[in-house]
Structure formats: structure tokens, C-alpha cells
Amino acid sequence: MLEMNFRPSRLFSLFTRFAAAPLLLASVFLSGCGGGGDSAEKKVKIGFAQVGAESVWRTANTDSMQSEAKKRGVDLKFSSGEGKQENQIRAIRSFVAQGVDLIILSPIVETGWDPVLKEAKRAGIPVLLMDREIETADESLYAAFIGSDFVEEGRLAAQWMVENVKGEKVNIVELEGTPGSAPAIDRQTGFKEVVDEHSRFTIIESQSANFRRSDGKDLMESLLKLHKKIDVVYAHNDDMALGAIQAIEAAGLKPGKDIVIISIDAIKEAFEAVVAGKINCIVECTPLFGPLAFDMAEKILNGEEYERRVVMKDSVFDQSNAAAAIDSRKY
């Protein structure tokens, strides 16, 4: 029985993943010592310092970058920061030492990048910021930024609610992301901005569930007991909304009918929940940066003109259009 169910493909992928680490190290080492052994004729080398693998969104983002690099024949040196800035700084230093053509950075935090980015600048390596921005006095330290507009996502969520939720007095409960994180702050700002313009909507409660599913469930369980009338749940990400749905169902209510659910990110599971009628609206925050990021990188490297700040266009999905789009979802 054990053998019957065992999947060789999984074992293989396990093996390749384990094998990949030392190989990657070896290649770093070789290219570091070899002194520019450009045997592969002028293959573009790009270093990519990723945040980590903390969510489905992030892994989809990594996959998108890696598959696009493969498609274009770019030599992508990938480094995962595992949520620590020191790791990313070390990765950038090693990219500089290896003499890559361009560095793509998804900064974990906003500050503290100046010294290492100056090193890259001195080496003449342009830096492309992805997904998140940095705080710096010297804007010339990076070539361009490409990312999502979290404030706009919050606005889109609120606009859908204003148009679709009826009622004289609508009580909203907001499930915040990790306190202090950019998406949590911005998605709150954008949402509140629109809600404040419409007096029939009130945010009666705003608490953090740390972008986590089980926290979303636990928090919602409490809020359901605290407030007799909750009309809308607005969650800063899908995971918390999916957790809240479980709490609402456990309380004998129908998510999507008795309580309107709105969330951001649009992972595949949330799509399925929209089709099942349990979530009413999701605002997409696409992680598929690959094609655009490499377009930008090429423009920068070829000295063509490019926009310094590119924001991904996010779409809104509800029962009317989710079913049609669900099959194209990869993550």
C-alpha cells in the first residue's frame, strides 16, 4: 500500500531541489573565481534577491520570474532572503562580485539599503526594485520600480462595495494584515478613503489577523460575538477571508449572503470561493511580474527609454466574471 501510493515524481523533485542547492553554490563559486569565463556568448546575467517563500503569492511571483528568465534565455541568479534583510544585502554583494548585468530586488524592509546599493552603483550595475519600494534620499540608487499599488487595491475594494452593497447603515469589519507592513497600511488607507465619502458605511471594527488563516478565523469568531450586526467583512488578504468564512459558517450564518466578504490578492482558492458564492469580491494583486520585469530590464540594459515607476494594473472579480477567469489562474 505504501509503495503503491508513492509518487516517484515527487521523490525526483525532492531530489532536484536538494541537489540544486550545492550546484548553485558551486556555480556561484566557479563564476566568482573564474574571472569572467564568458563561455556562453554574452548571456545576460541577472541577480534576483527575493523576499523568501512566505506565501503562495510569493512562490507564484518567484515562479513567474524564473520561467520568464528561462523563456528569454537569461541567466537568472536567484537568492531567497528568507525574510531577513542581511541575507538580501549579502546576496546583492555577491551579485556585484559576480559581475551580473542587472539586479532585481524585492526589498524586505524599506530602509537601510543605501550602502549596498551604492556598491552596486559604483560597480555600474543598475538595480530594479520589484513589488515593494525603498526609502532613500538618493533616488539615483535604483533605476526603476515596478510593483503593485496597494492603496489603489483598497480603493477598488471599497468602490465595489459602494456600488454593490445596499442598505441604509452598513457595518464593516476590517481584518488587517500584519501591523506596520506596507500592504496592511496602504490597503487600509485606500479603503478608508472611499468609505469616508459615503456616510452609510461605517468601519465598526479593525483588528489584525496577521495575514494568517487561523488568526482570521479566531478573530472573526470573537467579532461575531461582539457585534450583533456585521454586514461586510473586508480582509487585507484572501487567507484571512478564507479563515473568516469558516468562523461565519460555524456561527450558523452564510458567508457571501448574510455577510458580504471582500478580500485582496485573488489566489486560486479565493477564486473558487467566489464561484461557490462564499466570497463576493476579490481584488487582484498579481504576482506575475516576470514578463514586465524582464521587458524593463532589457530596456534599461539597452539604454532605451523607460518609465521609472510602473504599477501593475489590478482587476476586480466578483460572481459576474470570476468563473470565466478561474481556469487561467496558475496560483
Binding site: 512566505e54 495575514f211 488563516r213 482570521g216 478565523k217 487567507d239 478564507l242 469558516q246
Partner: peptide
């Protein structure tokens, strides 16, 4: 309890 096993965030 949440009908899903999330290897990244559970137990943090």
C-alpha cells in the same frame, strides 16, 4: 479548524 494546511504560516 481552517480546512487547510498552510506550511508557511501555521505555528509561526
Amino acid at each position: 479548524s481552517v480546512s487547510a494546511a498552510d506550511p508557511m504560516r501555521v505555528g509561526e
